[in-house]
Design a binder for these strands. Structure first.
Lengths: 112, 112
DNA sequence: TGATTAATTAACTGATCAGTTTAATATAAA
DNA sequence: TTTATATTAAACTGATCAGTTAATTAATCA
């Protein structure tokens, strides 16, 4: 798969608060589907499908332990996201008064 | 809007290669819709809608200059994305042989 | 074996996405 | 005042999303 498609999948997977919460839980350690589902007011199949999205994005890895399917975080795609985002770091670190001036100038043109 | 919803919008906006390419172009400087549309094999309304998604996510700011609607990058949401992602930095920076061992162990259990 | 537990699959629904074409709006230029 | 340019809006389509309930699979336990 192309890098770009990997980013598509990672960003899409991260665009959901339930899935981000699942990753936050997995950052503390590997666990099972039922335990992951616990905090959410949502059916188990719904969680199962979120896990599939995360797995397809490479953000989790699933194993098997008897009737359990332990999930573990795989942070590699997050590194790719961070590298992509870092392209823009110098821009968001630019002095804010400068940014504000640009934004204000555009708005003035638009409104006036 | 809640921080979490801002992240939802930012991640969703970034989950599309056309929109990421638009941001890359805007990193070089503000420009108009037609010029942004140039490289893409896609109708102008399609680009216009992508720009709306980016605007709703706060990733671009739009002004007005006669019949032109200049677009400028606003990197603030990217900073939020970077901060969110950084929570996981220590995990993806963990030694890879350790990660590999964990992954291998899970797969062995699954297969064997 | 039969019952229980863990998790997924299947089938369905309503909402949103990404694109199209056609029509409309706003400004500039002839 | 007509015409051209830049852009958006509207209406539509097919695909994907996020959830549901009911059924199924896989393993454990009594």
């Amino acid at each position: 798969m192309k890098d770009s498609e990997q980013l598509d999948l990672a960003f899409a997977a991260l665009a959901n608060p339930t899935r981000r919460a699942i990753l936050a839980r997995l950052a503390q350690g590997e666990t099972t589907v039922n335990i992951l589902a616990g905090p959410f007011d949502m059916s188990l199949p719904a969680i199962s499908m979120h896990l599939r999205v995360l797995e397809n994005a490479g953000l989790i890895i699933r194993g098997r332990d008897a009737q359990f399917r332990p999930c573990a975080l795989n942070a590699a795609p997050l590194k790719a996201v961070a590298l992509w985002t870092d392209q823009y770091r110098s821009i968001w670190e630019a002095r804010f008064d400068v940014m504000d001036a640009i934004i204000k100038a555009m708005k003035d043109k638009a409104d006036g």
